[in-house]
Design a binder for these strands. Structure first.
Lengths: 183, 183
DNA sequence: GTCTATACTCTGATAGAC
DNA sequence: GTCTATCAGAGTATAGAC
């Protein structure tokens, strides 16, 4: 299994992603990461200056990945249909990549608010909203929609609602929300 | 300042709460906690079996505290007014006690879903919803409302929306949601 | 019920040889 | 670009004296 034995930023990133998804952020430590790559921990620092840089790159990856999932789901649909499809893709992504998704809305150091990959995601939400309300740059509505999506994703993960509850609550909430926005 | 120099579960809890609110869950460690109480770390284990027990107690405290804040805000109001007031109290609580609030929806070990203080909070949300929709035990609507509240609290904390965005988004979202529920 | 002392495991990170 | 070796520190928890 051991490859030509050289590291690249991508092979490291891929291994880091696996560790993150399997055991959460605390499991993504430099030593286990090095073990998994068949390498000594210090070697990693040639490719990423520190652990924070690695996490930052993963965060970017998550933003892009989630955005891609929503875009793909909305492709070929318009208005309510596009919004519904993208919303489903959102919670489905959060469900299937819980820890990666968890990086996205972690509190940031003030002033470091990301100008990066999250922007595209935000613009996408704005576009979906516009397709329903016909109001461009309706940030209030976009904030509200995102809040609902994120909140649902977290509640779903927390497992506080037994088994059946969440899913139908999602349909009901999303529909009510859209109806309320457009009336 | 040093008192009769004896620990109680409550003095420990109070100091733990301070550490938690000041520096987040990672700052709540046994050693700093003991320092703050003028005591050796090992002494703490006479009162709490381990750190997890301490966190669990704090979690209960958070649930009760948040519930109290919502109840007080809703007292003397009915229907939409009660719901709006409690909703505001919710996000305000999350804003002023971010780390304590953060304990509430942390993922739990499956099967350990809390039968504890969170139940009262849930029932309160159900009552608020019933006051608006006149439907008892409308769990779908309650899940949707809670999702929106929680999601907004997190987005607000994440600071990804500049400064002005979130607040008006909250009003818009809450009103739309209620309108959608009742139409 | 608090103390001293300590065991143990884990972390991120660096210097310098090869 | 990877290695060995190591630093400097964090953490939870326990045994046994007082």
């Amino acid at each position: 299994m051991p490859y030509p034995a050289k590291l690249t930023t991508d092979t490291i990133l891929s291994a880091a992603l696996t560790l993150l998804e399997q055991g959460g952020p605390d499991a993504l430590a430099m030593r286990p990461l090095a073990d998994r790559l068949g390498v000594r921990p210090s070697s990693l620092y040639r490719h990423y200056p520190d652990r924070a840089a690695l996490l930052g790159t993963l965060e970017d990856h998550a933003a892009r990945d989630l955005h891609a999932a929503m875009s793909q789901a909305a492709t070929g649909r318009r208005g309510h249909e596009a919004l519904h499809a993208a919303a489903h893709a959102y919670v489905e992504y959060a469900r299937s990549h819980p820890h990666l998704y968890g990086l996205l809305l972690a509190p940031r150091a003030p002033g470091l608010a990301g100008p990066g990959a999250g922007k595209d995601l935000w613009n996408h939400v704005l576009t979906l909203i516009e397709g329903v309300t016909h109001t461009p740059d309706d940030t209030d509505a976009a904030v509200a929609l995102w809040a609902f999506l994120h909140g649902f994703a977290v509640l779903d993960r927390s497992g506080q609602f037994g088994l059946s509850g969440p899913r139908s609550g999602f349909e009901r909430g999303l529909s009510s929300f859209i109806r309320g926005l457009t009336s």
